[in-house]
Amino acid sequence: MRQKSQVGLFVGLITLDFIYLAKSVPRNNQKIVAIDYTVAAGGPATNAAVAFSYWHQAKLIGVIGSHPLCNSIVADLETYQVTVEDLNPTQVEPPPVSSIIVTEATGERAVVSINAVKTQVTRDRIPQDILQGVDIVLIDGHQMVIGCAIAQQAKANHIPVVIDGGSWKPGFETVLPFVDYAVCSANFHPPGCKNTTEVFAYLSAIGIPHIAITQGENPIQYQANGQCNTIAVPKIKAVDTLGAGDIFHGAFCHYILQTSFAEALAAAARVAAAACESFGTRRWMQQQI
């Protein structure tokens, strides 16, 4: 449901996700039959890009390669009109693959995955015009060298930079000085930080003006220009929590281009909650958000 021609650039991990809905995760040596399944492109930046594409134009930059499995990734992204800049199109190794089991009764997910450690690329792979026409940038930290270079360019061109702080990754400290919006999970622990108070202090000391920490079904804690507050999130019966944080980030990138930090967080929380009410990372887009 595109409203305007704004463009978001999403930098990071691209995977192929095999997602199963089951009564429970299997025990050792047990075989189970899934109730439902779906296959989709995945990764924090990828799911955020797809979510953003619900309203605007999304560009995704990362590594896909030429392995036959990559055809499924490309086809899924084409369905949602996400433009992809493949940083290593001749790579013949399989893409990172994730296997996810979602428990029917709770919506909780169990994930086995490979991250982007084996698919890192250098900054010379970045196209010179990558930021042309871009209104906002999101970096998930899985291509840190690329992410740092793009964040630096975006800052110089007054393009807002968002980080998906799902967890701390070595090298994030090189990106943070260029960040306008740090939207993190409760699992994001910079060096020496053991609680949210220390995380806020760490990020504030770097000079990030807008910081938020999501806590699942618990209220979002946020700080804007030194002022702290909380935002309640919708109460739902979760069907599938997979990708909720990624979808939250994609929705946030949409709303922050339209409204205030607090209002963007609240609106993104509503979208992420709606996404949790259906199986997989795509079916929520069939609803009216």
Rank of each mutant, 00 (worst) to 15 (best):
H56D: 15
T46A: 14
N29M: 05
F18A: 04
Q57I: 08
V25K: 07
V50H: 02
Y54S: 02
K23V: 00
N29K: 03
W55S: 09
D76M: 07
A49L: 10
C70E: 11
G65N: 06
S66E: 13
Y37S: 04
K23L: 03
L77Y: 11
G65C: 03
A41R: 08
L16A: 04
T15F: 10
A22Y: 02
D17R: 09
D36M: 02
I73T: 09
T15D: 14
F18W: 09
S53E: 09
Y20L: 07
I35S: 09
Y37Q: 06
I73N: 10
D76Q: 07
A49G: 11
G65T: 10
A58N: 07
F18Y: 15
K59G: 10
V63N: 10
I35Y: 02
D36W: 02
L60E: 03
V50W: 02
F18M: 12
L60I: 03
I19D: 05
T46Y: 11
Y54R: 01
R27S: 00
A51T: 14
V84A: 06
W55K: 14
G43M: 12
D17I: 09
P44Y: 01
T15L: 12
I61F: 05
H56R: 15
V25R: 05
A22Q: 01
A75Q: 15
V84R: 07
D76E: 11
I32D: 00
I73K: 09
